[in-house]
Design a binder for these strands. Structure first.
Length: 761
DNA sequence: CTAGGGTTAG
């Protein structure tokens, strides 16, 4: 067994604290600790049973440290001798006798552990144990014998990994001979029995491990939680014997112990719940927590917090609410973290006002039982929540509150949230002011601050200043990361500067910044949309080479790119690839294909795809219907387009959107069916779908064709009322028409109304 | 992973 020094020291420290009779594998330093422990706890007996032939044991701290208890050459010597001598002759072998019993360090726990292991088989190891017991001139100490048995357990578990019975027999035999169990033996046995489903036997081992058990009345429980701590520590860590015990096995054991009124403390409980949740077993975690409570174990806020976090990650808000209710009913006092989780959960659901309400209430009044002081995390969560719903000014108010109340000082996260809020709102200057404020308060921006600002600047058309800012920050020593590159690459793709995007990608790879999948996704999407679908495809291959998989979004982008280039065979290749990679096509995939086929006039295939879509468990969306309607309009089949339009809202209960109305209105107008188009506008109003500039433009063109001026003027008023801005197309149509009928005054008012509405916006 | 809550990217 390999044990690192630091790990060993940690174990020894624990040993000192827990006062359990164990053998460990002392190093030089560890040995001193063990000796100290030994003297404190068993000193009298140990010293009195010492043979006169032994050199006097260390008596005071000033005496030299005891000899090194583990001597590799000594172990090798003994093992070789044992292996080459017939077992029947061990007793009569004087060399062996001298080596083992006449030197002071020979019977040290570690030596015996190594020697016994060296024998290689359970049978031989047992014979050796018997030999030690019967041949030792003095009654052997229990600790070295514990070590010997530990090695026996190890050998047996390896010889017959399937048979727990053999191991159990060995265990009972050691117990009958009053050999104390070492903690490692106990862990091995508990693990082994737990895995074999013999939880009862694990329990027996556990009870054997408890050194104080004889002094405790049967009715008294729980006996000794510290023992439980050690067992759990052994089980929860990656275990020394190599294999890990599964969470379920541990849960089984803990619950079995629970039936005997032994419970883990809340640190272990929380840790187990966290582990269950992280491995996607929040159901198990839920059951486990409730089982522990049912059995009478104490459940504190921390354990509930762990479960709440896990449930939150799965968006299982129903259970979160249930648990919160249970906490209230069972008078489990929520703590600072519980409130943190609750506030975060409300913020993420965009229920910020409720979150603020909780925040106000958590402080409590004098006569309230619950009173938790808010900390910086609560503030940050709320500020972020406010910013995410566009209430960054209120977020700023909370920042001021933090400063004035001196409860918790703002930190980098506080500022990052606010900077992002103002960036998203397009108020880049305010974000920069916040950055200056940060510096003044002695807070150094980090890479998140940098990325947030760079992204904000890029998204608001300041890509060059973003680059300047980035370089400035780099000079100040700030490191960039893959997200910085993601932000930049997507910005340059959007600005149609693919070369720069590619150059940045190369730079990222060269600087050894470990890329993340999303950088590739950005580039693939940018290249595809720029029509460089072959380049996009090579980036995809590159990505696969470095071990990333394409996701459905990237596949869709590629399929769409190839469809637009009319390269159906490549699109099919992508579909095949997607299937082989085990990625499920989504409605976007189908919509892309349906769009391709319907717009090339192959409505048969388009409808077949729609049926397959449904068979695949997907639901045709508003885009699916819109695509078909658009295509039927293009080929002038207005009847079919209208049929789909009626079907979608009645049969499929998908509400049409503005795009669909616009397509239909435009086609109807072009076919001189202006009345029908107008009735669709009424329909929009009835269904609460807002017309946009394109809707009005289509109508104006149609009305102009039949010269229905009165209606056009009414629509112009309506547009102003709805603060729907005209664009250059609107102006083009109206200017020609209105000036021809001497209604320029009306047009002037209309434009003024537009100016007013933009200045308000 | 360090008991449990907060920030950036298609």
């Amino acid at each position: 067994m390999e044990t690192s020094i630091s790990g060993l020291q940690a174990k020894l420290k624990k040993l000192e604290k827990t006062h359990i009779c164990n053998n460990y594998f002392p190093t030089n330093r560890g040995n001193l600790l063990v000796s100290g422990f030994w003297l404190n706890n068993f000193g009298g007996r140990h010293l009195s049973t010492a043979e006169p032939t032994h050199p006097p044991p260390p008596q005071a701290p000033t005496s030299p440290p005891p000899p090194l208890s583990f001597n590799p050459s000594f172990v090798t010597q003994v093992v070789t001798l044992l292996q080459t001598t017939d077992t029947n002759d061990w007793t009569s072998n004087t060399t062996l006798h001298k080596l083992l019993f006449l030197s002071p360090q020979s019977l040290s726990p570690l030596s015996l552990l190594r020697i016994t292991r060296g024998l290689g088989s359970t049978a031989k190891a047992l014979q050796f144990f018997h030999y030690i017991r019967t041949t030792s001139p003095s009654p052997p100490d229990p600790l070295p014998l514990s070590s010997t048995f530990q090695a026996i357990f190890e050998l047996a578990s390896r010889e017959q990994p399937e048979s727990a019975t053999k191991l159990y027999e060995l265990f009972t035999s050691s117990r009958d001979q009053s050999i104390p169990l070492s903690i490692n033996s106990a862990t091995l046995l508990i693990q082994f029995f737990g895995r074999a489903g013999m939880v009862e036997k694990s329990l027996i081992v556990y009870e054997e491990l408890d050194p104080d058990r004889r002094n405790i009345h049967k009715s008294e429980c729980p006996p000794n939680e510290r023992t439980m701590d050690i067992v759990l520590a052994g089980l929860l860590k990656r275990n020394w014997s190599g294999r890990r015990v599964s969470e379920e096995e541990i849960v089984g054991l803990v619950l079995k112990l629970g039936e005997h009124c032994v419970f883990p403390n809340n640190v272990w409980l929380s840790q187990l719940i966290t582990r269950l949740c992280r491995s996607g077993k929040s159901n198990k975690a839920w059951e486990f927590l409730h089982d522990v409570r049912r059995l009478g174990g104490s459940v504190e806020a921390a354990s509930c917090n762990a479960l709440l976090t896990g449930l939150g990650r799965e968006h299982d808000y129903v259970r979160m609410n249930m648990l919160l209710k249970e906490m209230k009913e069972q008078k489990i006092q929520p703590d600072v973290v519980t409130f943190g989780i609750l506030i975060n959960y409300l913020c993420k659901l965009r229920r910020v006002d409720e979150a603020l309400e909780v925040f106000k209430k958590m402080r409590g009044n004098e006569n309230d039982e619950i009173s938790v002081e808010p900390d910086v995390v609560h503030y940050n969560t709320l500020i972020d929540g406010l910013c995410k719903v566009g209430r960054q000014e209120e977020g700023l108010g909370l920042l001021e509150q933090m400063k004035s109340r001196h409860e918790s000082a703002p930190n980098i996260v506080t500022y990052n949230c606010l900077i992002d809020g103002f960036c998203k709102a397009g108020e880049i200057e305010r974000s920069h002011e916040l950055l200056d404020q940060m510096y003044k308060e002695g807070l150094m921006p980090n890479v998140i601050t940098l990325n947030t600002l760079v992204d904000g600047m890029c998204k608001h058309g300041r890509i060059n200043s973003a680059m300047d800012f980035l370089n400035q920050m780099r000079q100040k020593g700030l490191k960039t990361n893959a997200i910085t590159y993601t932000v930049l690459i997507s910005a340059f793709c959007n600005a149609n500067n693919i070369d720069k995007a590619m150059a940045l990608f190369d730079e990222m790879l060269k600087t050894g910044c470990s890329p993340i999948a999303i950088v590739y996704y950005c580039l693939i999407s940018g290249l595809s949309q720029a029509g460089k679908v072959d380049d996009a495809s090579s980036v995809a291959s590159m990505m696969k080479k470095v071990g990333f998989g394409l996701d459905i979004v990237s596949y869709n982008v590629l399929i769409s790119g190839f469809c637009r280039k009319n390269r159906l065979e490549k699109a099919y290749e992508m579909l095949k690839d997607l299937e082989e990679a085990g990625v499920k096509p989504d409605s976007v995939t189908y919509n892309t294909l349906i769009s391709y086929f319907s717009e090339t006039g192959d409505f048969r295939t388009a409808h077949t795809l729609m049926r397959r879509m449904v068979k695949d468990g997907l639901v045709p969306t508003v885009v699916t219907y819109g695509t078909l309607i658009h295509a039927y309009c293009l080929v002038g089949n207005l009847d079919e387009a209208m049929k789909i339009f009626t079907d979608m809202s009645s049969a499929s209960r998908v509400s049409p959107n503005t795009v669909i109305y616009n397509n239909l209105i435009d086609s109807l107008c072009k076919n001189k069916k202006v009345e029908v188009a107008l009735s669709l506008m009424d329909d929009m109003k009835a269904k609460g779908v807002k017309p946009n500039t394109n809707t009005y433009n289509a109508m104006f063109k149609g009305l102009q064709e039949i010269n229905w001026l009165e209606k056009a003027l009414r629509l112009m008023d309506q547009m102003t009322e709805q603060a729907c801005n005209p664009n250059y197309i609107t102006m083009e149509v109206l200017t020609d028409w209105l000036s021809a009928v001497n209604a320029t005054e009306k047009l002037r008012n209309f434009v003024q109304g537009y100016e007013v509405s933009t200045s308000i916006a």
